[in-house]
Simulated scan of single mutants.
Amino acid sequence: MSMLRALRRRILTPSVRETQLETRGFHIKDAEAKHQLETVGTSFLQGYAYAVEARSASQAVDWLETVPRAFRGFAYEGAGMGAVMLGSLTGSSRRLTGILEGEGRRHNYMIYVGIGWAMARLPKFLWPDVTATDPVLRWLILDGYGFHQAYFKTDSYVRNPAAEHPFTWKGGPDAYSARAIDQGIGRAMWFVGGTDPDVVADLIGTFPEHRHADLYAGAGLACTYAGSVDGDELRRFAKHAGDHLPSLVQGSAFACEARERAGTTTAHTHLAAQILCGGRTPAEAAQVCTDARPATCAGGETPAFETWRQQIAATISSIPPTQKGAVA
């Protein structure tokens, strides 16, 4: 059986070469940023492989917990994708459910994103039942879908901003789906642009104005969670955001919440929170997110997820607890 699991891992797991910046044709800012982004990619694939090869969900979690803390969330993201891919073969969602019910509950944001990666690879009839997922957080699945498409189909999703990509799913109103996917595309732009704030801002600038807010929200999450920028670069990126700064800081706050929830907060998280979230600590920015989270989902064309994002943006952008180091 161990040989069979190893074979399953080998067949199902994407090649590490696919995460290398040269392979993807992404911008290389410097050696440090390149190493950071490629380590993110290898950590993702490690988590994917753990979810596919493990005997059980609990063993997968045990393995995932050995990934270095700074990159553990990316491994859980990969595990979300791997669990869904495995489930598409076995006809069971037990691997995904087991990871989410175990230690993975602290990484649920990232696992939901990973589900979206799997959906981008699978035919629709093999998609998981998204109606069984958290009605507020399930929009993160489309964030993952958008990230995957922008990362692997960059010419179509990033370099051709006029291209149309119709999308329909059972998770909520189609009118909002494109916006959630744009949030994932914006997050991927941080990788496409090699963590260079000027390059990323230029990429966003090629898109129609009405898409900028969601793209900056995704990029704000990535620049806080994945990092590889200093304080001056973060301030410059905030300046590029202009009128869309509230969206940028909302994404940054989401990243703080994801890291705080999982216990993977790093020095960079503190730097980004101080500069982008009005001088707040990551814990304070995360608290804004948890306090604002809707208790119920009433339905309608504006999902509770979007209402949540708007409230976070408004709160973070209001008079902060301290102006030290913050973007004015």
Rank of each mutant, 00 (worst) to 15 (best):
T281P: 08
F167V: 10
A285K: 01
E233K: 05
R9A: 13
W127Q: 12
I141G: 02
A258D: 11
H27K: 07
A79D: 05
Y76W: 02
A54V: 08
L234T: 08
R69Y: 02
V67A: 04
Y157F: 14
E53R: 09
A267D: 14
A238E: 08
A162F: 10
G78Q: 00
A292H: 13
F191I: 09
E164Q: 14
R55S: 14
L7G: 13
P246W: 02
H244R: 14
A60F: 00
L12A: 11
S177E: 05
S2Q: 13
G194W: 10
Q59C: 02
T42F: 01
V136H: 02
R236K: 15
A31P: 00
I11C: 10
R8F: 02
R211M: 07
E301R: 15
R17S: 12
K34L: 15
L271F: 06
R261E: 13
I275D: 00
C289I: 08
G263R: 09
A163V: 06
Y216R: 01
V229T: 15
I275H: 06
T224R: 05
A162E: 15
A54T: 04
Y112H: 14
C223G: 01
I185N: 07
D230V: 10
Q46H: 07
P320S: 12
M1Y: 11
T265H: 02
P14D: 08
R5E: 13
H27G: 03
T195F: 01
P173A: 03
A83N: 08
G73V: 04
Y76S: 05
T315S: 10
P68N: 12
R17N: 11
R261S: 15
F207I: 00
A272L: 10
V229W: 03
L21R: 12
R10P: 06
A132P: 03
D202G: 09
G278W: 00
G114P: 04
E164Y: 12
T42S: 12
A162S: 15
A298F: 13
A314I: 06
G25W: 06
I316W: 00
F26T: 07
T133N: 09
I185G: 04
P320A: 09
W117E: 04
C277N: 10
A213I: 01
E306K: 13
A286Q: 08
S15G: 08
G231N: 02
P14S: 09
R5V: 07
A75Y: 00
